[in-house]
């Protein structure tokens, strides 16, 4: 008699950092995520493009459970995000466990969301001190190093309100990196910036994507960045992944009519 051992969670490739398995989400009658299946490999930079309201931000935000999902599974580094399974049913994870998983996932927001009551340095030290319980000296040394890395060593004592949008976003990237994440999520990181500041933020992101060991999922329409740093692009519309390919293929030879139509709008 053959013994069948069912694995508790699907066997996953060690190289897969993010996995979406038949994920669905509704906002009332609106089907925001429609049977999304997706894998992001280790050290890969995935760029998500799509019209506004297409579900691309929701897709990104569900990776660290800032958005809940109605069905399907999302795994990060092999662990299910936001839910645990018991007797075939899904239950929302305890806040503590969700927080622990989020601590290993960096996130950068469109509107920076720096903490306005803390200086640049304190913004970066805050989570290592209060979440990882790193000693103050270590946290400070790390923060100083990160500020140098994003080119803002001289701004350590400035409050966010004293910094330009581009500088704030670079601090926000440093703040996320201070948690030493293996995965970074970027939610339209340059859309709220004045045109002359976009370059400085993209430079930091490019360096991150190309240089270190980092898996990145980026919602952005910056073609220059995507061509230079992305391994793969997915085009999302109506909550579905419509097309998936390398930047060269997507931009130069889009296959789907909706992709063509969308690109013709954003590329003028």
């Amino acid at each position: 008699m053959a013994t069948i051992i069912a694995p508790p969670t699907p066997v996953m490739d060690n190289n897969v950092v993010v996995k979406f398995d038949h994920v669905n989400k509704y906002f009332g009658a609106l089907h925001v995520l429609n049977d999304v299946n997706l894998e992001v490999k280790k050290n890969e930079t995935l760029v998500i493009i799509g019209p506004s309201g297409s579900g691309k931000s929701t897709l990104l935000r569900s990776i660290n459970h800032l958005e809940n999902i109605n069905s399907g599974h999302i795994y990060v580094n092999g662990r299910m995000i936001g839910y645990y399974e018991k007797n075939g049913r899904l239950y929302e994870e305890s806040e503590k466990n969700i927080s622990r998983l989020r601590a290993s996932i960096g996130m950068v927001f469109q509107r920076f969301n720096l903490f306005p009551h803390l200086t640049a340095l304190e913004n970066i030290m805050e989570a290592p001190l209060n979440v990882l319980k790193v000693p103050r000296e270590t946290a400070k040394a790390d923060a100083v190093r990160l500020l140098q890395r994003v080119g803002l060593a001289d701004k350590s004592d400035n409050y966010p309100s004293q910094l330009s949008g581009g500088q704030q976003q670079r601090i926000a990237i440093a703040r996320a990196l201070a948690m030493k994440p293996s995965l970074m999520l970027f939610d339209e990181p340059t859309s709220a910036l004045d045109p002359e500041m976009i370059g400085e933020v993209l430079d930091v992101m490019k360096e991150l994507a190309l240089g270190l060991e980092m898996t990145m999922v980026v919602v952005s329409h910056e073609m220059g960045f995507a061509r230079a740093a992305a391994d793969r692009i997915i085009f999302v519309d109506d909550g579905r992944i419509i097309e998936e390919n390398t930047p060269e293929e997507i931009y130069d030879h889009p296959r789907e009519a909706r992709t063509k139509e969308f690109l013709s709008k954003i590329l003028h």
Binding site: L66, E95, R102, S104, I105, M107, F115, V131
Partner: peptide, 10 residues
């Protein structure tokens, strides 16, 4: 959201 994404509890 920023605080949560850094792993802070409520």
């Amino acid at each position: 959201e920023a605080a949560k994404s850094l792993g802070m509890t409520f």
